[in-house]
Nucleic acid binder design. Structure first.
Lengths: 206, 206
DNA sequence: GCGTACAGACCAACCAGTCGGTCTTAGTGA
DNA sequence: TCACTAAGACCGACTGGTTGGTCTGTACGC
């Protein structure tokens, strides 16, 4: 692991524990066993480091969401796959996500705009699936798609506040509950029957 | 409005906009048109001000949740009422909540413990309703109550990230969607029929 | 000998909190 | 009624400590 990665690893641990403002560049430098010079050789500022962490996570979750969506044609199945993949990311990038949601207020405007765009794209993917699903008859039409999108995002994103890798529930159990709850919540009676007959339902892990 | 309230009002606006660390005591003092002396006459530290904001919100939401729960005996109806009341608080205390969830990492330990206790009590109320409802047959038993509780909390709490008082959706529409989604997600087929026949369902505002 | 990777002393800016002081108001006693 | 006192409310210059970032080096591979 080179120095740049060591600094990022230290910052992830320290930022997610004490917050961006609770950790000084000197703390970072001590923890990763380098120096101020070393730090500023790799990053132009403390703010850039914060941006790098943000971008690494959001870019990853975005690519996962895209490929999950492309895997199926039917909205019901797309949603299943997107939920599964997005929640799984919380297992891999738990610390990135904690920093992402805790400290995004402190991103400098130039960085903020790049991140915002990617975050909106993620939102758009889910919105489209909901919308398509209402048109195709998978999802109940009485649900307004904007609020529904935010409900789903809330349920999923909140995971970072309480989920622990070494807790008594694993991430597949978590995503199974989200999927089960949301499928019952969203699907029409007929689509729900289809869903419960499908292989996707069978592989849920309670 | 006395000076203490003016300082709190300024801090709510500035903290929720720029974050706790993005606002200095001097900024606060300028905005509320007082002085360092005035500030420290009313608050022992910047941290105490942060605590006061936290406590005001969490104490309110807790009392609302308690009285919502006491209003009915049947878990299904208790949940309906708790969701409605909790989401409504987001309309009243939007700025408090933003500060609460954004800056709770930076609460000093002495304050943190008081807040944590109240937050856990809120969690416990929902957990109990879910648990009671599974025993009474209102809620599907295949859902693990812990993860289910956190799913609900996530959906509700995330509201602060996107809801705007002057947006095109009002808070009753938001809570109606949450309630509709969750009732379909949680209730057994029979309980759902009961629910849709009830007056609570009739008053939902889509 | 030249560019890249890193070291660490140093600095200017900022910030939470202090402290000596003023102004207002309420109470008291003659 | 008025002089005096005490206390609470508020003021703002000042301080000690911390922090992000800079700058002058140095070691080393090519």
């Amino acid at each position: 692991m080179d120095l740049r990665e060591k600094i990022i690893a230290s910052s992830l641990r320290l930022f997610s524990e004490k917050g961006f403002h609770g950790v000084s560049v000197q703390d970072l430098v001590n923890d990763s066993m380098t120096s101020k010079g070393g730090f500023y050789h790799h990053f132009s500022s403390k703010d850039e480091l914060l941006y790098v962490i943000h971008d690494k996570f959001i870019s990853y979750v975005l690519s996962e969401a895209h490929s999950a969506k492309e895997k199926y044609d039917r909205p019901m199945k797309q949603l299943h796959e997107i939920l599964k993949a997005s929640v799984h990311v919380f297992d891999l990038y738990n610390e990135h996500i904690t920093v992402f949601y805790q400290e995004n207020k402190y991103l400098k405007q130039e960085y903020e705009e790049i991140i915002k765009q990617k975050r909106n794209e993620f939102k758009r993917i889910i919105y489209e699936v909901i919308n398509d699903g209402q048109q195709s008859g998978d999802f109940r039409e009485s649900l307004p798609p904007t609020i529904t999108t935010m409900s789903i995002l809330g349920m999923v994103n909140w995971t970072y506040k309480w989920y622990q890798r070494d807790g008594d529930k694993n991430i597949e159990q978590v995503s199974s509950v989200y999927i089960d709850l949301l499928m019952h919540g969203l699907l029409t009676d007929e689509a729900l029957k289809d869903y419960e007959r499908s292989s996707l339902y069978a592989e849920l892990n309670f």
